[in-house]
Amino acid sequence: MPVEGGDGGVDVLLELKNIKKFFPIKHGGTDKRQRFVRAVDDVSLDIASGENLSLVGESGCGKTTLGRIALRLIPADGGSIVFNGEDISRIPNRYLKEYRKNMQMVFQDPYSSLDPRFTVRHILREAMTLTMNAYPTEDAQRDRMAELLEAVGLRQPDILSRYPHEFSGGERQRIAIARALVLNPRLLILDEAVSSLDVIIQQQLINLLADLQQRYHLTYFFISHNLRVVKKISRKIAVMYQGKIVEAAPAEEIFRNPLHPYTKELLAAAIDYKAIPHGRGIQMAPKARLVDQGQGHFVLEG
């Protein structure tokens, strides 16, 4: 998906080119052929600096896998990851640290993304130890922690010495966001970051994320199964289905004029709570390509 020139020559922060990830299926019986799940099948995405891209799709369509590949948490089977003009898909693991400082992830489940044995202080300090130069003294660390907690809207006085189990889901997610921000990343990958929370908290967090974006000049790569959630925050939306991007367009465009049948179903389900009538009935040609429909609107052909 080429960059949409909305801001006029924005620089591309993260570029995923033809990413593939196949998971082998354990086979039993007499069939000796190795089969694969095409979790991510030749996906290309660009995220411009300061932009919000949302990746939506049903559970199991490969969107989380794609997010993890972008961070190189899991290796891709093909394709390349270009961050800030540099191909990071083949550099050895030990050099990755430098890039990971610029890309952070907020995970889906705030109950399992914080180590239950760590206090908030330890959670935040752990990230700081990686940039010792930036926060050399205890005071510097404490100031930074206070700043981050204030930024994510946690204001209880003794918060640093509390354990994750003493917080609600929304608060935990705020801590997770604070942790992701410690290293001053440029890109935040939000993997279903608000999905496990109730709607009110979801709204609060989305507003918070919008504020943080302003404050820290962040770029968001928002992964969600819920179109309604991403509607407000994203400028562009890519719809993923069975490992492929089936439609990508500016947010309003997707909502106003969905072209691919799967997008239509997704919209129907998200906005009107209509059951998807023929879930698996959508056929995609293996070699299908995204076709430009004008105004930055791309749809998978066929």
Binding site: F107, Q108, D109, S112, S113, L114, V182
Partner: peptide
């Protein structure tokens, strides 16, 4: 496979 391990990994530990 826990997410806090992934989180630690993505921090670069």
């Amino acid at each position: 496979e826990r997410e806090y391990v992934l989180a630690a990994k993505s921090l670069g530990l």
